[in-house]
Write a protein that binds this DNA or RNA. Structure first.
Length: 649
RNA sequence: GCACGCAUAGCUCAGUCGGUAGAGCACCCCCUUGGUAAGGGGGAGGUCAUCGGUUCAAUCCCGAUUGCGUGCUCCA
């Protein structure tokens, strides 16, 4: 017998192996109808699975977030059922529920076309209508092997269980049986609101050396309105896509002659420079900004170790005197910073010494990885290397952490911290890692901030703190990083003179705040949907004289705005006011200053704010200048950044 | 890198079941001098990504190349 405790404290004592649905029925008939699955001590299982353990018994209905995973996993089986009916030759791989839906991998002779997807979706509706129950069976390894004799991928999976006491189960819905641990919804008719999204290649088990399968991505919900909302969200992110907005707002472009490297227009350059200047200002007092060469002899990369492991990702440059490709563009700044550091003697009094740089870096990413501004081959990092004594680590890490979080906050971005510890492949002794991890952890604890652990995810030379940023539509980006490194100071034989007049090895911290300016700008574009705060906007005020004869006055106004440090532009084209307002709105200029006869005479402006519609405010020129310069100085954020902020419908 | 898809005017896209192309916006000119999201008219603009093949004929079919897009261990 096993004992189940219901949420209200009541208990049910039932024979071992009783199917869950019997227990649910004993609670209520209506509940059984509404139930999708159950959880025993948090472990989700389906209604037909025999109960084997005592524990807290919770019935999962549509309202439980875990129900969606069950539905989606069943959706994957229904997808496979449909594919097998139409393409009996398809071999099946994995078909899990994922964050926003599910997928299923198939091995087929001919990849799927969009028409195939439409046919599969139609077939899935039939399978759902046929209301096949999901029947669970528990089988022996031998029986399973026999059953999946024609499915080599499943056989490979079965191999993993050889010798383990794992219960092997299969699920059958109508004509289709899959090796699966469940859980599933009771029958196929539960899948009502779903959509196949796209197909793409995916390596079997993510291994590029294995065969490529065809993966079909799909999503499913319990309610049509949830599905609609999800599809709407997808549309919304497409509209915010920095590649689309970058073109629409004329910020940057790419050219086939320079794949993976952005061209910045004057607007985009202004944006880039504004962000760069902000960082420069923050680092003015405690950092030493330096510039180092972009191109180095391989001798440097041999010392740093890049020539051995990273060479394929570097752009090599031919030297006409040696006739060899023995120069390379730098993929990171650290080695060059070390050369500068090592060029003279340093006292312990100088530490922590912080070198910061904005140099251009090149990494030869594989072509398939390139994507807009988020994965490029040429980029600039807000890079910093701190040379310090071991005793200074805690304070420095706290300082850098506050710096990074403060920087994000200026843009209305929040971040969570992740502490990544020693990876399997690493350099240095265990003792060194103990010291480094302890030091970093103490420093992190001292900040009082919550953080998640990422065991084994550190850099090969040291543990690190990663900053995971959430944008206005809830997407996550890994941006900043603080990495502790005992290895490079060793390789580059770095030293400082201590109080004891002896040479000591400094510890190194690598720090990046935005990862790269390119990627950060991509995130900002999507975060703000192109409607940047005033201080970031490439164009802050557009001056619009109503008629031609007001142009001279408008030009004076523009000059005054510019003299005050405001990025103002004058639009005197002989177009209607409506036309010019529309264009300024489309380009997401934060302020439109309209000048008619009345304003010219009173030296005022009829100010329209971006996105505020017809609402206008007549304000004295001086007052307007004070307001805008104030917003620029304080780097004010626009009214709460919401999911729809500034997105034209 | 690999699988699939896409590439037509500056942009967004139609189109040609093989007979060398069209719209809207943008651009230029003219009229309009306007009060808060498109005033009206006219014009210019394309070796249909590149190279090769098939064909009487290719932007369209086939192949290659380049670029871009989706994706490439959230496990049975």
């Amino acid at each position: 017998m096993i004992t189940l405790v219901l949420p209200d404290g009541a208990t049910r004592i039932v024979p071992l192996g009783t199917p869950a649905h019997e227990v649910v029925l004993s609670i209520g008939k209506g509940l059984l109808k509404a139930s999708i699955a159950v959880a025993v001590d948090g472990v989700v299982q389906d209604l037909s699975t025999p109960l084997r353990k005592d524990g807290k018994f919770v019935v999962i209905t549509e309202k439980d977030p875990r129900a969606l995973d069950v539905l989606r996993h069943s959706g994957a089986h229904i997808l496979a059922t449909a594919v097998r009916r139409l393409r009996p030759d398809a071999k099946i791989g994995f078909g899990p529920a994922i964050e926003d839906g599910f997928y299923y991998d198939f091995e087929v002779a001919h990849p799927f076309t969009p028409d195939d997807l439409a046919a599969f979706e139609a077939e899935m509706r039939k399978v759902a209508a046929e209301k096949y129950p999901f029947v669970r069976e528990e089988v022996s390894q031998a029986a399973a092997k026999k059953r999946f004799a024609d499915d080599p991928l499943k056989l490979e999976r079965l191999q993993d269980f050889e010798g383990s006491d794992e219960i092997i189960s299969t699920y059958t819905d109508g004509p289709f049986t899959d090796l699966c641990k469940g859980p599933h919804v009771p029958d196929t008719s539960y899948l009502k609101h779903f959509k196949l999204l796209h197909a793409a290649g995916a390596y079997w088990r993510g291994d590029e050396h294995r065969q490529m399968l065809q993966r079909i991505y799909a999503t499913a919900f319990f309610k049509q309105e949830d599905l609609d909302a999800h599809l709407h969200r997808l549309e919304e992110s497409k509209r915010r896509d920095h590649r689309v907005l970058g073109k629409a707002l004329d910020l940057f472009m790419f050219h086939p002659f320079a794949p993976g490297a952005a061209f910045w227009t004057e607007q985009g350059t202004t944006l880039m420079n504004t962000i760069n200047e902000f960082m420069r200002e923050l680092q003015r007092d405690d950092y030493k900004e330096i510039m180092t060469p972009l191109l180095y002899n391989k001798a440097l990369w041999e010392i740093s170790g890049h020539w051995g492991v990273y060479k394929d990702n570097m752009f090599l440059v031919h030297d006409k005197e040696t006739g060899e490709n023995d120069f390379a563009l730098k993929p990171m700044n650290c080695p060059s910073h070390h050369l500068l550091f090592a060029s003279k003697k340093h006292s312990y009094r100088e530490l922590p010494l912080r070198y910061t740089t904005f140099d251009v870096l090149h990494r030869n990413e594989i072509s398939g990885a390139l994507s807009g501004l988020t994965r490029v081959r040429q980029f600039r990092q807000d890079d910093c290397h701190v040379y310090l004594m071991e005793s200074q680590i805690a304070e420095e890490v706290q300082r850098l952490t506050q710096f990074i979080l403060g920087y994000y906050a200026t843009f209305g971005l929040s971040a969570t911290l992740k502490f990544a510890t020693r990876p399997a492949e690493r350099v240095g002794t265990d003792e060194m890692w103990d010291t480094a991890e302890r030091g970093l952890k103490q420093a992190l604890d001292a900040t009082g901030l919550p953080y998640a652990m990422k065991e084994g995810d550190g850099a090969f030379y040291g543990p690190k703190i990663d900053f995971d940023v959430t944008d206005s539509i809830g997407r996550h980006w890994q941006l900043g990083t603080i990495q502790l490194d005992y290895s490079q100071p060793e390789r580059f034989d770095l030293s400082y003179t201590g109080e004891d007049n002896h040479a000591h090895r400094p510890v190194l911290i690598h720090r990046a705040v935005s990862g790269s300016f390119e990627r950060f700008i991509a995130i900002l574009i999507e975060h703000f949907a192109g409607a940047f705060p005033v201080w970031l906007s490439p164009e802050q005020v557009r001056v619009l004289p109503i008629a031609d004869d007001l142009a001279p006055h408008a030009a004076e106004v523009t000059a005054k705005l510019r003299a005050a440090g405001i990025r103002a532009h004058l639009d005197t084209r002989s177009e209607t006011l409506n036309y010019r307002i529309r264009e300024a709105e489309t380009m997401k200029v934060p302020y439109m200053a309209v000048i008619g006869k009345r304003e010219a005479e009173a030296n005022t402006l009829a100010v329209r704010e971006r996105g505020a519609g017809k609402k206008q405010e007549v304000i004295a020129l001086d007052a307007f200048i004070a307001r805008v310069t104030g917003e620029i100085r304080s780097r004010a954020l626009p009214a709460p950044v919401t999911a729809d902020a500034g997105v034209a419908s």
